[in-house]
Simulated assay, not measured.
Amino acid sequence: MGDWLFLCVAGVLAGAMNALAGGGSFVSLPALIGAGLPSVAANASSTVALYPGSAASLWVYRGGLRSVCGVPLPPTLAVTLLGGLVGALLLLWTPSSLFDGVLPWLLLVATLVLAFGRRLGPSLRARFRAGVGTVLGIQFLLGVYGGYFGGAVGLMMMATWSLLDDADVKALNPPRVLLVTAANTIAALCFAAFGAVWWAQAAVLGLGALAGGYVGAKLGRRLPPAAVRVATVLLAAAMTVRFFLRAYG
């Protein structure tokens, strides 16, 4: 009984985090591993469990969907889905130890970009203008990462977009939720097809994430952009430290 309650509470927190800034898998994945799942199965089950919460957040954010760095959503969505498929297949074919070592460095880059992107962004945009091909290529790689592991992929999307676009973090939340949900959709289908999901644990975690995702999205629409940005940077920094300790401590 204790494990099920623990997973449900972790799901609520993870769903709210995903709706506000991303990074919910950094709660759900350790919770599933703590409940006894192997790491790859925990990663696959986490993706499936958090999917309903992402869908609930997307419903709340549906009125704020906008282009990404000047590129319309349909092609951006298509490359994200393709990248998610590639990443999910890579996860199923490679050992979990591979991304355990690389993940902290990816998070460090994302945290630095989030923290200093507002200063670097204008300088970069003055010297370089990303074309449609560049934006779609970057988004494909983010989709691959989302399907492969997914931890903080929403943070990484917003960090990258903040360098290429001068929109505030709050305005980027709706497309972030849409594209993270897209990558998770194709990844979840792959994991289910290959039998990598532990369904009982995923269901309990997912019920909590559904409630947390809806409440978190409601809060995200009301919080000022500065507060969302500070919370996002602090969350990213905390997750980066935690996973460096996990990988190398």
Rank of each mutant, 00 (worst) to 15 (best):
G2T: 15
S28T: 06
T76E: 09
G146H: 10
G206D: 02
A231Q: 14
L178F: 13
M17K: 05
G87D: 03
A182W: 05
K170L: 11
S28P: 09
S96E: 12
R125V: 01
G154N: 04
G23H: 07
T47W: 07
W4C: 13
L81M: 09
A247P: 00
A110D: 03
F243C: 10
R242S: 13
Y61V: 02
P38R: 05
A238W: 11
A126D: 07
N173E: 00
S25Y: 00
Y248C: 05
A238R: 09
G216C: 09
P174K: 01
S45R: 00
P95M: 00
P225W: 02
G87Q: 07
A196H: 02
P30A: 08
C69M: 10
M158L: 03
L223Y: 04
L92S: 14
A41W: 12
L112E: 11
Q201L: 10
L90G: 12
V230T: 15
R125W: 05
G213L: 05
A217N: 09
G208I: 01
A183I: 04
A183Q: 09
A19D: 01
L92V: 15
G11S: 03
A126N: 11
L141D: 11
G212A: 02
D3F: 05
F244L: 11
W59L: 14
A183L: 02
T232V: 09
G216E: 07
K218V: 07
T47I: 10
A19Y: 08
A182C: 05
R66M: 12
G146P: 09
G143M: 05
V215N: 13
L189T: 13
A226M: 15
R221C: 13
G87P: 02
P52C: 04
W199V: 08
G206R: 01
A238T: 15
V135A: 01
I33W: 14
A209N: 02
S57K: 14
V86I: 13
L210K: 10
L50T: 00
N18Y: 08
R127F: 03
F26L: 15
G2A: 15
R176M: 10
G64P: 12
V60S: 09
L32D: 04
V40G: 15
V144P: 00
L155K: 07
G11L: 07
V144M: 03
A226C: 14
W105D: 06
L13D: 06
T76Q: 11
L245T: 14
G34P: 09
G63Y: 13
L234I: 12
I138T: 11
V204M: 04
G154A: 03
A126K: 01
V177N: 04
A167Y: 03
V144D: 09
G154Y: 09
P74C: 00
V228W: 04
I138M: 14
P95E: 06
A14S: 06
T185E: 02
G133M: 11
M156D: 06
G146I: 00
V228S: 04
T185Y: 05
M239Y: 12
D3N: 11
G24W: 10
G220H: 06
A227K: 07
V230L: 11
V109R: 01
P174Q: 05
G63Q: 10
L106Q: 07
S123T: 13
S57M: 10
L81T: 04
A237Y: 01
A171C: 09
V228T: 08
A238L: 09
L234M: 13
A211Q: 10
T111N: 06
V215K: 12
V153D: 02
A188R: 08
L90C: 13
G150R: 01
M17F: 02
W198D: 15
L223I: 10
